[in-house]
């Protein structure tokens, strides 16, 4: 039976993550609650915290805010500044495997290498989302009418992936073969990088705002419908011509966040009404992790072993669910 340890957050929970054994709750008021042995509150931003990403090595969480700063926060609550763009609202951030940090605002994206070397990328239209390729050597930028791909260490012309419309979020597949974007329309768009084959994934009643890859990148799980929609990516041609899995179907609410278990074919699903379910892919077996609350679930994250789940909502309700034996 899952046990919930509640965590008090006073503001919109933008992102949850585990830094080792410590659960981090990045909140809209600029603070990060760190819950490990004890509880620490780190003040990451003067104003609001707009975006956060956990480094692939799990050492720190990187956040950006409307104070124009990008900072790294460790499990002990120490805050170190990575970059500062005064008066800009930095609302996109990504961390690469080798430690580089990318951030963006308006029509500009930047990459800061671990040694501090910075590179600036100017785009013709506003950036909708940024993502590093799995090895961190390429940066993908979602924008109006497609995606721009840049090499991080080499000066070379950008590579373009075109698809009409506004692309608002972006992910690489874990094997680096695919790029998927969320769109202003209620749809996803994907490209197979080898041949730029387009993939269109539609049928959502609302915009898709949360995407996550299942263990080994077999499925791409998405929010935006009354069930978590999981597109199969393990076949030769990705999801093309295939039906997605639909897990945790509800009749009266919409999935707001998805987080796949790091090892098993299990997904944690957060809904607009605040409920959280864990669902197994194989047989759709459901376990209730949290009853409906006061606000949409806005963040979900598993720890590395898949034994604990940190959740947060738009109203600042938050907690850690332990799934123990």
């Amino acid at each position: 039976m899952p046990v919930i340890a509640p965590v008090d957050c006073d503001a919109f929970v933008v992102k949850t993550a585990f830094i080792g054994n410590t659960a981090a709750f990045a909140c809209g008021d600029g603070t990060i609650r760190l819950v490990g042995e004890g509880e620490t509150i780190a003040k990451a931003h003067e104003g609001g915290l707009l975006a956060a990403a956990v480094s692939p090595d799990g050492r720190r969480i990187v956040t950006s805010g409307d104070d124009g700063r990008v900072v790294g926060v460790s499990a002990d609550g120490s805050v170190s500044e990575i970059a500062s763009r005064p008066r800009k609202w930095i609302d996109m951030v990504a961390v690469a495997a080798q430690g580089a940090v990318a951030f963006a605002c308006g029509r500009t994206a930047w990459v800061v290498q671990e040694g501090g070397k910075e590179k600036e990328y100017t785009l013709s239209r506003a950036v909708g989302g940024i993502a590093f390729a799995p090895r961190g050597l390429r940066l993908a930028v979602a924008r109006y009418d497609g995606v721009s791909l840049f090499w991080v260490n080499v000066d070379s012309p950008e590579q373009e992936l075109s698809w009409k419309g506004a692309h608002t979020g972006i992910l690489f597949s874990p094997d680096g073969k695919y790029i998927v974007t969320t769109m202003q329309e209620n749809a996803l768009h994907g490209w197979r990088l080898a041949d730029q084959q387009d993939m269109r994934m539609t049928g959502y009643p609302t915009k898709v705002k949360s995407m996550d890859w299942s263990a080994k990148g077999r499925y791409l799980a998405t929010s935006g419908a009354n069930a978590a929609v999981l597109w199969p990516f393990h076949g030769k041609s990705g999801p093309m011509g295939q039906q997605p899995l639909q897990l945790g179907v509800r009749s009266d609410t919409i999935v707001s966040v998805v987080a796949c278990h790091p090892k098993e074919e299990v997904i944690a699903i957060g809904y607009q009404d605040g409920m959280v379910l864990a669902v197994r892919f194989e047989d759709n077996a459901e376990v209730l992790l949290r009853r409906p609350g006061n606000a949409p679930v806005s963040a979900l994250a598993w720890d590395a072993r898949g034994e604990r789940l940190a959740f947060g909502t738009e109203a600042g309700e938050a907690g850690i669910v332990s799934l123990g034996e």
Partner: peptide, 28 residues
């Protein structure tokens, strides 16, 4: 940042930057 939703008709254009800014403001 003008987003054209369908076929570029004036009736279906929205301000993409506003959508984003309102979303950001809701975090505060």
């Amino acid at each position: 940042e003008i987003f054209e939703m369908n076929n570029g008709c004036i009736c279906c254009t929205v301000r993409g930057d506003l959508i984003r800014t309102v979303e950001n403001l809701m975090k505060r």
